[in-house]
Design a protein around this nucleic acid. Sequence first.
DNA 1: AGTTCCCTGAGG
DNA 2: CCTCAGGGAACT
Length: 286
Amino acid sequence: MPELPEVETVVRTLGPLVIGRVLGRAEVLCPKILRQTPAAGLAELAGRRVRSVRRRGKMILIDCGDLGLVFHLKMTGQILVVPAEAPRDKHTHLVIGLHDGVPRRRVAGADAAAADELRFHDVRKFGFCRICPSGELASAPEIAALGPEPLEIGLEEFRARLSRRRGRIKSLLLDQAVIAGIGNIYTDEILFGAGIHPLTPVERIRRPRIEALFMEMRAVLERAIDAKGTSISDYVDAQGSPGGFQNLLRVYGREGEPCIRCGTAIRRIVIGGRSSSFCPKCQRQR
DNA sequence: AGTTCCCTGAGG
DNA sequence: CCTCAGGGAACT
């Protein structure tokens, strides 16, 4: 599932494939995935040059001058850059032409440069794309509501944000308004590393352990980015390559297997409808 | 704070 | 056939 490290990897692989290139015609094969995007907005994309590709939380922001594209991959979304002639499948929902700069005058009879396509692909159709004026990007509801970036926030701000809230630590780390970009896999990995039971009320976690949590959050996310994300079901980067962090997971998806630290069987519980794996010995409920 | 829903493919 | 996976919005 694309979380911060996967989205970061998509952004890093997508950027070089699209920045400086010009968008062509957009084709919507599944209108459901367009959020608050009038057909006119789509038509206006054609001819615009891609300026930048950035990430905010789990959102992908593509700046095309005065128009911006926002993608959220949710669980099974993919953004791919492929040759225009590559076959599509039934889960390809949005296609935007992509070509190199448009010369002022085309040489008669010259072949058009081989064109690529930027494609949004999503088996479950939970993901979406929004097109809006660049000036409205920051105020788009999905972005305005996000908490700070976990790799940019400092320890004191992290601690302050958590201390303002009540509730289970797992639910808070998953809450995008508290901190942006962490999902189910990395929450479990971070809590394991910090030795905190996922159901622990945040107000019961003492300062030294909050510090351990902060360090672990940074370490896990950075390691996962280094490994180019976790590919369990559908995740691939903009070139279609899988990540490698699934081989480095310490607790997620390891229910019943021995804890890598103490050998105790990893247990799984459901919190807020999400499965949570943890070691009952290394992550004692305090 | 917990439940339901969206959606589809995989696995039982 | 049934159940499960899951981000996040909407609802209870």
